[in-house]
Design a binder for these strands. Sequence first.
DNA 1: GTCTATAAGGCGATAGAC
DNA 2: GTCTATCGCCTTATAGAC
Lengths: 196, 196
Amino acid sequence: MKTLSVREQLLEHTLVLVRQRGFNGFSYRDLAERVGVKTSSIHYYFPTKEDLVQAAVTEYSARICDHVRHIDTGLPPEDQAREFLQPWLDSAGGDRICLVGMLSTEALLLPEPVHRVLKEFYRVNETWLTRLLESVQAAQHKPAALAPQTMAQAVLGALQNGLVVARLFGAPQRIKAAADLLTVAVSGPVVEPVPA
Amino acid sequence: MKTLSVREQLLEHTLVLVRQRGFNGFSYRDLAERVGVKTSSIHYYFPTKEDLVQAAVTEYSARICDHVRHIDTGLPPEDQAREFLQPWLDSAGGDRICLVGMLSTEALLLPEPVHRVLKEFYRVNETWLTRLLESVQAAQHKPAALAPQTMAQAVLGALQNGLVVARLFGAPQRIKAAADLLTVAVSGPVVEPVPA
DNA sequence: GTCTATAAGGCGATAGAC
DNA sequence: GTCTATCGCCTTATAGAC
């Protein structure tokens, strides 16, 4: 377990605070207390709060998008979908939603460079899902009811709101509706296991 | 066109401000300037900011839920779905998202009485969609790939995030993926009109 | 790099005159 | 009901010592 530099600690705690409370929901004081420095030290690394959030969203988007890009396209579609869904299922029901979902909701408060990263996140994830659904559709005889891109956007949206609702209700399983939507699209009807 | 009381004006402008910027994204000063009163007058009607947001979310949820409850259940499912979708399509691409979607994202900043209204909003909308999908499914020979309740949650989630993304991209048509998901679920494949 | 000290202004909220 | 005036605190941000 590596020791993080102060800058890295600031970034990690910012990721947590934004995912919990949003851009306007935490202060330099909150962040300083968590890392164990004074607020003036934060300004040394991130001159303004916009610099801080820009670094946070860039780091977060890179992590998720890298995860998606590294999914083995040789795997069966069901397995690719499972890999894609993993980070979403992992965070469902905790106190953190997707950082991109949070900041997109607060978009009117944020500068344009942040918008660019948010849009890129949606583009990368939707494009990956579209390709997956296209490959499934190409292997079938009947065309799907919804175009791959349309289903991709619907799935990603359902996942984003799924995290929000799972947290609101304190019910991790509420992410399952969105996950099932993707699962069905790549591999047919979901059959729940029957209790013995 | 009726003249609104000061209290009604405060509530209407609060609905707008929350849908644009969220609970922490506007101040009593912002609201006072818009209505043309001093900030102390706001406290006369709404002693605390939590009182203000409680009144706003209650009013907003009542409006949408009443709209949903008044949809004629005797209509064909496609027409019921169209009615349901109308307020979502109307606000897509503007600067306002769903107030419930906004406050749900900010849930950790808000008191429990607000949570109760947010959850009730999801319950009412999901229940209505579930019933609609059940009625469609009962009239068909094959069972749908997804259970009605699951599809209902996915559709509502896709709509919420659809508003967020439509605003972020400045592209009203981005709400269509979510709308198509519901439309297909109640009436089969969506066929785009071919340009002449 | 990290600190102390402080600036300059915003915030929600209250007291009391009218 | 609406105002003026003000309180106490929080906010982001900066200057300058160490």
